[in-house]
Write a protein that binds this DNA or RNA. Structure first.
Lengths: 406, 406
DNA sequence: TATGATTAAATCAAATTGATTGAAGTATCC
DNA sequence: GGATACTTCAATCAATTTGATTTAATCATA
């Protein structure tokens, strides 16, 4: 397939999103200031802001007088301009959240699962979504994101975590759920979704290129390149778990040996702690948290080993990508993550050389059991907000909400 | 800095480049067909092609009748529409080439160097460029690319190969040379330039995301992401040579141990062959070629070792990036590269899984001692040809030639 | 082998649209 | 009141789209 040409209409959509992004990230701004920052004329900004106000995405606030001249009316995001739903589930838990345009969590529902089959999970999701969005204007709900700890191909899971659930393999989850709840559904793996979430609302907000390491049941990575998630040629970029870190190390079901995931993941930590083989029992983060609180020496040794492997992995990432920063998050209990980060330091000498060694190279992301669901909720927001150059090209993809500004 | 808005003028430039790219890559095409492939209207294409013809970048050729209806006038690239100069040098050799819009090499000059200092090299380059471009219309020469085996920061070299040449460190090469030859000068490291060259004219022509491994005196990588070279947050992406591949391996001047470059590079091969420490003598590719032809067992062992390290490095790259393909080239004598590639196979199981194992994962690039110079010549061409989304954003950067279409 | 119908490409002319340019209005500080 | 700076109105501009027409080939039929 070839790239497409552009025209005025595409430019319009792009500019509207651009203004929205600048207002969102750079806080209340006057129109003249927006014009300066975008390079567009004041009149163009005037029209664009008018459209965005009409669409309910931004508000105008009476200016406070201060300097010389007429004070600028401040333009700011209206959190009630849009809502999205985030859904995440794995073998044990289903979490559903509702967030607004500012990324604030407005509601959360949680269910325990046991050997979840598609039909029952879809039923639970349908109920949760219905209860959460009740009372919010339907036309402002941009969509729902679904996150599962699995590889996704064409909006279908193709393998579901270390202990695979065959019922889900190839199940057309996005399509089925979309019909059920009547919303556009975005599907993504946990790592990429968490990276998108961090990019919209977290430490990644000011970063255009970063590498997000997601420590979950397994371990994965989400790449943000130029402000957009990068999925690779076949959608498998960020298969961080199968990075070979130990020559002739532990065997992995992928066929290689010494994969990172066998050393750094909740699954690996729990296996080390209990002595049971990986995948033989479901991962319980709380158990790890308790062991850490009790000062368990086996877990402590695991943390040290894991920190060593991760340190080398970060060096590889920096050498290949040179991201602005590496961000680590996931569902690892926060005290354990803190210990892990502490033992990863000092990092190996940077590719940037001694010249530029002042920049922060490693950051902790927001972590918690709702992280994947919040990442899921970020997917439709990202699609509706980002002034992606993709949108400039011809066939308007999936007509995102902002472009529907009449 | 924030991103910029767009307007009609940017759209114009983008569309013209897009059409030019499609004609260049997808061969002679009728205007209606171009319209179909870009999604633009036939009339828009009519105007755009008119501009490109007027600018001398494409030609119209009388159609051969064939099917029904009026035969389409074929639009095709005019190789004489633009010329660029490519310059590469290292400790031993200076190569200068002239290429046309189609990437054909129209001329080449070569000089031997010995401890090259800036003043004498600039003099040699100036002379070569003058002789090569004589007789070609000045206004059609888009610029010159310079490639050196070094890190580049702000168009200046910051370290020059394993055995550094302190005279060049920080020398404002692009600026000085630009003044001297009166052309825009683009500067890049050898790996990225070779990747751009491969993307414009070689196996990378149809690939939008690929990873180019350049085996030179050291080893480096050039990343093409979405058809554009990706340089990372601080311009150090593709520091492939310092990928840690051997835990606690050979020490490297970068401060780490076990860097890939200590095992796979002309420098490493020669050190292994001669027993002399790396960097103590200049690398001579011909000596390696002779040893290989003579069946030297030390070199043979080196090839096997290098293949093993590269195989693991490719696995890392595939896991992190998922490129469409990994391409290997450089200035390693071709028979040695062939042996190396043969011994790298079979690769480790792909991240794409068994489903998609048919795709070619590894390719050989054009290789030869003029590769870096041809890559250098590709830099101004790339800048003038590519319909990069960058160009859509506000401040028209460096007003490339195509946009000068009056 | 004329002849007209059909198909497809190229061209001409007018309309559209979002941004720019230019000018006037408004609010605050000094 | 003058200076400064944000806001708004009106006209212009430029590249694309829409719609209608022209040109040139093949095909079908008498």
């Amino acid at each position: 397939m070839t790239r497409s040409g552009t025209n005025l209409e595409h430019a319009r959509g792009y500019n509207r999103r651009l203004v929205l992004e600048i207002v969102r990230l750079q806080g209340p701004l006057g129109r003249t200031e927006i014009a300066r920052r975008t390079g567009l004329s004041v009149q163009a900004i005037h029209n664009i802001v008018g459209d965005l106000v009409e669409a309910g995405l931004v508000r105008r606030r009476r200016a406070e007088a201060g300097g010389r001249g007429q004070p600028a009316a401040e333009i700011l995001i209206d959190p009630a301009g849009a809502y999205t739903v985030g859904i995440s589930f794995d073998h044990r838990r289903l979490v559903t959240v509702l967030v607004d345009l500012a990324g604030s969590q407005l509601g959360l529902e949680e269910h325990s699962l046991a050997r979840p089959d598609p039909e029952s999970v879809l039923g639970l999701i349908g109920g949760s979504v219905g209860r959460l969005v009740r009372g919010y204007p339907v036309q402002r709900i941009w969509g729902a994101g679904v996150v599962i700890p699995a590889l996704i191909e064409q909006a279908r899971p193709v393998s579901f975590g270390p202990s695979s659930l065959p019922e889900w393999d190839g199940f057309p989850l996005a399509e089925t759920l979309g019909r059920r709840i009547g919303l556009p559904v975005y599907m993504e793996n946990d790592a990429t979704a968490a990276a998108v979430g961090e990019h919209l609302h977290g430490v990644g907000q000011r970063l255009r290129d970063f590498f997000y390491i997601y420590i979950g049941v397994g371990i994965g990575a989400g790449l943000i390149v130029g402000g957009e998630p990068y999925r690779g040629a076949s959608g498998h970029a960020g298969e961080f778990g199968h990075l070979p870190v130990v020559p002739d190390g532990l065997p992995c079901q992928c066929g290689n040996r010494g994969c990172l995931e066998r050393y750094v993941s909740l699954s690996a930590a729990q296996a080390r702690l209990t002595g049971a083989p990986e995948g033989s029992e479901a991962v319980v983060p709380e158990r790890l948290a308790e062991a850490f609180a009790a000062g368990d020496p086996t877990l402590d040794a695991w943390i040290s080993d894991a920190a060593g492997h991760l340190r080398r992995a970060v060096t590889m990432v920096e050498n290949l990508f040179d991201p602005e920063r590496v961000v680590i998050g996931g569902i690892l209990p926060e005290p354990i993550l803190d210990a892990l980060l502490a033992r990863m330091r000092p990092l190996a000498p940077s590719v940037r050389g001694p010249r530029d060694d002042s920049a922060i190279r490693l950051s902790k992301a927001e972590v918690g059991l709702e992280t994947p669901a919040l990442g899921a909720a970020a997917l439709p927001l990202h699609d509706g907000l980002t002034p992606s150059f993709r949108l400039i090209a011809q066939p308007t993809p999936s007509a995102p909400a902002v472009l529907r500004v009449s």
